[in-house]
Design a protein around this nucleic acid. Sequence first.
DNA 1: ACAATAGTGTCTATAAGACAATATATT
DNA 2: AATATATTGTCTTATAGACACTATTGT
Lengths: 240, 240
Amino acid sequence: MISEAEYLDSYDPSRFPSPLVTVDSVLFSLHQQTLCVLLVERASQPQQGRWGLPGGFIDMAQDSSTRATALRKLTEKTGVSPSWLEQLDTFSGPDRDPRGWSLTVAWYALISWVACAPHIVSVSDAKWVPVAELNERELAFDHGEIIHAALRRLRQKTMYSLLPVYCLPETFTQSQLQEATEIILGQPIQRKSLIRRFEASGMFEETGESVATGARKARLWRRKADVDIHLFSRNLLADS
Amino acid sequence: MISEAEYLDSYDPSRFPSPLVTVDSVLFSLHQQTLCVLLVERASQPQQGRWGLPGGFIDMAQDSSTRATALRKLTEKTGVSPSWLEQLDTFSGPDRDPRGWSLTVAWYALISWVACAPHIVSVSDAKWVPVAELNERELAFDHGEIIHAALRRLRQKTMYSLLPVYCLPETFTQSQLQEATEIILGQPIQRKSLIRRFEASGMFEETGESVATGARKARLWRRKADVDIHLFSRNLLADS
DNA sequence: ACAATAGTGTCTATAAGACAATATATT
DNA sequence: AATATATTGTCTTATAGACACTATTGT
């Protein structure tokens, strides 16, 4: 029997075959009344030329976790950090990547479109695609499935939290939050229910400003600093 | 520019350094009015002799996904497949394993104690530990944290589903389900609320049998075949 | 009959759904 | 003033909480 120190001295990490490990993210945003996902064109093999999720390999020298990898890759593409980033699931198996047995840690994220639009339009290999148009596209690997899983999770969580606020700019009106929620859920919701939650959540504060959208001015709000997302104990739209 | 076929021909998977990838599972069960977790004693380095979660490396020749790896490892230890198995999260970073940058795909699972007790007692390197006693133990790696995350998820999901039923034997009484739920949540619940959910879920059917526990006989139930878990749109214990 | 556990009835409390009513801008 | 959007009021509905009540079995 050897000690742990001796064992580690002689440990050779390349001795055991290992699956191909990647980190991929589904970044959602709202643009022109539609829910969009960020796709990037694959610059190299395999599946060169196909569009897929932003992501890639873990940089073990830099990344302190797969969250760091996801953040690094998203920031490279968008120029900013997402407002919300949460682990979705991992997807694995021998057939999902032609190079062999692979595993991807999938994250999903939300960002305000205005926060990253300028950067995205300046790079040619990334673009926002409305989720409704995804079926027509042949995506790389199993990225279509990953996006669908992320969409289910986004919609589910929207039912018991105010997650859509992370798609809005720093300051926003209650009507914008309602619109974002309705676009994500794909159906109208009761404004009164939303406002009740908005107040009960304790997540927001008024900026003191207001803004006009053609008629009566609406108050502007922002997320309080360092206040976590509030989860409700009931779902919206529980019967529909 | 080369074709994908040419690229794959010359692809060498060992060219890029890769994190150490494992799959670990938190298997819950109920025994003597306590919620327990299955721990195994590490037979080899690193952290030899410490207790940790059942798990290990992916066998790329056998496993069709990390779910298959988790199932394989749990079946080795318990002799049976868990009734419930769901992905929890992945845990990753340069410091969680002394061998270097590592990633574990963590699953959580539920099983009836009677279903696997005979097998467990016959192997000396596995045992059930009440969750209340975990704080006193020094577990391998970050397995203590993983168990706590699994426990949070188990309790959360118990609030909006009848998940505890997967800890019960094949046939069971409503009182057993109530007891299991109360043990997991750590507090009493309203029997009436549970029964309402039980009926609304559509998950169960009577066996026709009943069983006596000292007084009036209780009806026995089983899960309907191929019926998925039902998720409710409100939580139990929402105010407490 | 009594004790003990199984199972039901029903009233209250909470938060969502529905939608009417009022308020404040702009023109 | 008319119109449009913002914001609030309040009645209804659905389901959980509380807890009393009835049912069935063993002694």
